[in-house]
Each structure stands twice: as C-alpha cells, then as structure tokens.
Design a protein around this nucleic acid. Structure first.
Length: 301
DNA sequence: CCGCGGGCCTGAGAGC
DNA sequence: TGCTCTCAGGCCCGCG
C-alpha cells in the first residue's frame, strides 16, 4: 500500500487502541516477512506497555516502556486491523470484513484493553523489528531517510538542494527516500501533475544554475521547486483527510476503505481526459525506472 | 552517481 | 470454469 497517507491513516487508527495498552502477548504466526523476525521478538514485546505510536516516512514506531521501539513497515500489501479479542481468529467477522480467510494474518498483538491488533500481509514485503530507542539513530532502516514531506524542515530550499547535481529525473528523485521520505509511485505522479512539472524533467532543474554540484551553496530554488513542495503538501494532506487511497489492499484499521483514489488526477487514468479545465489533453502512461508514470504531457512541462 | 534488471511474494484482472 | 500472462502502492542488491 502504503505510502505516507496510508501509513498515517493506519497510525491514527491504531493510536487510540495501542497507546497506554499493555501487550499481553505477541503471537507470531509467520516469522518470514521481508526481514526474518528476531529470535526474541515475542518475548521483548510481552508485558510491555505501549507509550506512544509515531510514524517516520512509511514506518510506524511503537514506543515501549522497556525502552525498545517496535518498527513496522507495511511493504506493498500490509494492513492492520483492530478486532475484539475473541474475534481475532474469526474469518469474515463483521469487525473485519475482508471476504477472505485470514491465512496472511502474520502477527497478533493481544492487548490488555481486550483488543487484538492483527497484522496481515499477503506478499510479506512488510517487516517488524525491535530496536533499542537509544540506538534508533543508527538503525539502518531509518538512517538514510530524507526529511518528512510534511515536516518543518522540508521546503523548496531543502528540496532544491537535495536535487542539486542529480542526473536523474524528477520522478526518480521524488521516489528516492533519501531525498524526501514517504512518497511512493501514486503520490509522486499526483504531485508532479499538480505542480505541472514533467516527470522527465531533470531533478537538478529545481535549482538555479542547473547542473551545479551537490551541496554547493548559492543555488536558489526555482519557482518550480516551490510549486512542487506546495503540491506535495496539498496532495498528502488531502489524502490523509480522505483516509488514504484504497486500490487493492489498503484499508483503515476498522476495515473501511480510504477514498482518495476517487481524487486521482492522473494515476491509473491512462487514456482518459486530463481534468485540468480547458486542457483537453489525455493522460499518458510510460515506464520510468521500472514503474508506471502517469501524466498529462500538455499540462506538465 | 546512475539506470537497469532481477528478486522477494501473492493476488487480481485480462485474455483465451 | 480455468488456465496463463501481466501487473501491482516497496525496497534491496549487483551489474555495467
């Protein structure tokens, strides 16, 4: 799923259930996700109170009273749902209508509140890992991440600087989690459309004196960079408000669908009319770095 | 530093 | 109905 808005939606769904609750038991039904579970995974969670639930890029971070942090990533197909304890194993129960069996329920956190938090991930590209809080800044999974796109540090100056000297396309740069952390294919396509910038444009053109070397002072962000930052802010905020986008797997923790997919302007709209008033163009698709790019060549330059 | 291909997995949808 | 093929919201690795 899961780009930033979907992960944030999940976080908001889990927070009231998990914060302040104690993990009576962590039940691992399948330990071979993208990263194999640590041997002491279940025992380090058992009995721990969750003191907070945060997010960094596409990662969820549950703070534990022990000083550990539980890192969670949803990969491509991961989802969480909250069910009452007695129903965690009941397929098709009204609390979690998914129309399928629960063969891919890999982890169940049994909470003192009587709720169970169930992690489901058919493709198993997701992961869970426990890290000591004091070692979090050296955690390889988080180390290289760029700024939060909705954080204060992320602005046109920073984005232009991060893209300075890059020989790659704007599309590829925005998907690079080291440049800005949390965007995926959908929201990159949508943000570029809103900013009216071509996905093929050179990333370095976000600052003046294109081709300048990375980190060189004096490169000013262009209006394009400002437009792009504004577009990223807007699309992410709107998507979060809508509960994320539900294409295949994403659901809110209640089982409800997000509905931002109805607001897509270009993503998955190949051959359809551009929605920009008066444009009259047609949404095109092509492959960039192995992934589909959707855009309107008439609007985006 | 960069693009590309392949891999990790399963499921949905299209076409036959 | 069922087969085969392609593609998918993420990310990592090695190659040239």
């Amino acid at each position: 799923m899961p780009e930033l808005p979907e992960v944030e939606t999940v976080r908001r769904g889990l927070q009231p259930v998990m914060e302040g609750a104690r993990i009576i038991k962590a039940e691992v039904r399948r330990a071979d996700l993208r990263v194999p579970f640590q041997r002491d995974f279940a025992s380090r969670l058992q009995g721990q109170t969750v003191t907070g639930l945060g997010r960094r890029a596409k990662y969820l971070l549950a703070d534990l009273a022990s000083g550990d942090v539980l890192l969670m990533h949803l990969g491509m197909s991961g989802s969480f749902r909250v069910v009452k304890a007695d129903h965690a194993k009941t397929p098709g129960h009204f609390h979690h209508p998914r129309g399928k069996d629960d063969a891919h329920d890999h982890v169940v956190l049994h909470l003192s509140s009587g709720a169970d938090v169930v992690f489901n991930d058919p493709r198993r590209f997701g992961l869970m890992k426990i890290v000591a809080r004091k070692a979090l800044d050296q955690e390889p999974l988080l180390r290289g991440l760029g700024p939060e796109p909705l954080g204060n540090e992320f602005d046109a100056v920073m984005l232009a600087r991060a893209c300075a000297g890059k020989k790659t396309s704007l599309k590829a740069a925005l998907l690079d989690q080291r440049v800005v952390a949390g965007l995926g294919n959908i929201y990159v396509c949508e943000a570029l459309y809103r900013a009216r910038l071509s996905p093929r444009r050179l990333a370095a053109t976000l600052s003046t004196k294109a081709g300048q070397r990375k980190g060189v002072a004096g490169g000013e962000p262009t209006d394009h960079a400002r437009r792009l930052v504004a577009a990223i802010h807007a699309v992410l905020n709107e998507a979060i408000k809508a509960g994320g986008s539900s294409l295949r797997d994403h659901r809110q923790t209640t089982g409800e669908l997000g509905y931002f997919q109805h607001s897509f302007q270009v993503y998955d709209r190949e051959g359809e009319k551009c929605r920009s008033p008066g444009c009259g163009g047609t949404v095109q698709r092509f492959t960039q770095n192995g992934r589909s790019t959707f855009w309107c060549p008439k609007c985006q330059k």
